[in-house]
Simulated assay, not measured.
Amino acid sequence: MKRTSARLADNREIIYFDIEGVDRKSDDPRDLPPVSTAAQMRHDPLLNEWVAMASHRQERTFLPPADRCPLCPSRDGLHTEIPATDYDVVVFENRFPSLSMSATEPGTRVAPGNELVARRAGTGRCEVVCFSSRHDASFATLPPERARLVVEAWADRTAELSAMPGVEQVFCFENRGEEIGVTLSHPHGQIYAYPYIPPRTSTMLDNARHYRADRGRNLFADVLAQERAGERVVAQSAHWTAFVPAAARWPVEVHLYPHRQVPDIPALSDAERDDFVTVYLDILRRFDALYDAPLPYIAAWHQAPVAADRDLAYLHMQLFSIRRAADKLKYLAGSESAMGAFITDVLPEDVAERLRDAR
């Protein structure tokens, strides 16, 4: 792998990851305005959660035609976010970031008119990960060596972002499909470097802490052990198991766990990274075979915080879809959206069986 870092016209970083050694000379001729530094965060005192405010994102690019895609390679007449005629995998700073290392501190430490709501600059970093230069590709159609390169990019960015001041957790993810809310159809994912530990991670780690105090064992490891012995396993390999969780919230949901407890992607061995690619591509193809059409999904890496509870955390991927039938979507309606109380229409055991049969 060859890694090349360069700068775009507005000084955002772009990083090329190439399987073969390529001499990258990145020259971005565009005249771009400065990236917004107005992102801020406000603290919800009722839920004890931070909410990012990034009003400048209202102007971001929305579902352009394929011949104007900003994630395709540049060519005559079209200068995109990638100033190269081809690429393997590319990561660059988001032009419309929810969080920015250049975010400016708000004038006051409380929200206007509400002293209960603390606020601060939306410090952090948001990156885009382009999986392929082909607009019509998807992660599921990547050859194994290209998917493996994406894993290397995730590991590289997790390590580098974790070392940045103020970053508390790095989140690698992919949104796929317009039903999910994707605004660019080119195959890509994103990485957020949060200046706080997000609610889901906090909840999982709190539960793991109580479990260890009560039973002396790791909660994630025990969940994995029980699932490996049960009927919801979809695929297994030497280093990974993919299963539908017993209390799955989504119509189609699979968790992928390495058999060895590690805190994050950089901690995976070469053999574990190779094996992940095999299992993950298999699961993605089963997803698309369920309804003989591309399945909208979210793929979310749950990594340990940068500096807290790394002994408790257990790296795993959560992969799920909102499609509950070939022509129906699962909407987060009253119970889910207002109360956070999920109600599912399918049994996890049935979903696991259907995925095992899907080819």
Results as ranks from 00 to 15, higher is better:
D288Q: 06
P266S: 05
W250D: 03
K328P: 00
Y257D: 02
V252T: 14
L319S: 03
S321K: 05
A300H: 04
Y331H: 10
V279W: 01
F320Y: 14
I265P: 00
R323D: 07
S269E: 10
A271G: 03
K328C: 09
R286H: 08
T344G: 08
H302G: 01
D274Y: 06
M317I: 15
A308L: 13
R249L: 12
D288M: 02
L284Y: 04
P263N: 08
A338E: 11
Y280E: 11
P258V: 10
A304V: 13
F276I: 11
V252G: 01
P266L: 09
L295M: 12
Y257V: 07
A300T: 12
S337A: 15
Y280Q: 12
L268A: 05
P258G: 03
R323E: 12
A313M: 09
Y257P: 00
P348Q: 08
Q318R: 09
A308M: 12
D264P: 00
D275V: 13
L256N: 02
A341H: 14
L332M: 13
V262P: 00
V279L: 15
A247V: 15
P266F: 12
H255N: 11
G340A: 08
A341D: 14
V277I: 09
S337Y: 10
Y280P: 00
M317S: 06
R323T: 09
A307S: 15
E253T: 06
A300R: 06
V254K: 01
Q303R: 03
W250C: 01
T344K: 00
A326N: 09
A289H: 09
I265Y: 01
A326Y: 05
D264W: 02
R286D: 06
L319W: 08
H302D: 04
H316D: 07
L295F: 05
Y291T: 08
D327T: 14
M339V: 12
S337V: 14
K328S: 13
E272P: 01
H302E: 11
R273V: 11
I283N: 02
P251C: 08
L268Q: 06
M317D: 03
A289T: 11
Q261K: 14
Q303E: 15
D311W: 05
Q318N: 13
K330N: 06
D274P: 00
Y257K: 01
V277G: 02
V279F: 00
V277M: 06
L281H: 07
L329F: 08
L319M: 13
V346A: 13
W250G: 00
R249T: 11
A338S: 13
P263K: 08
A326S: 14
H255V: 14
L329T: 12
L329Y: 06
D292E: 14
Y291C: 02
L319C: 07
L281Y: 07
E336Q: 12
A308F: 10
S335G: 06
D270W: 03
D264T: 13
A325I: 10
I298W: 01
A271K: 09
A271Y: 02
A271L: 10
V262I: 15
D274G: 09
M339H: 11
D270A: 15
I298K: 01
L329W: 04
P296V: 08
D288H: 12
R323K: 15
K330Y: 11
A304P: 01
W250M: 13
F342N: 05
Y291L: 07
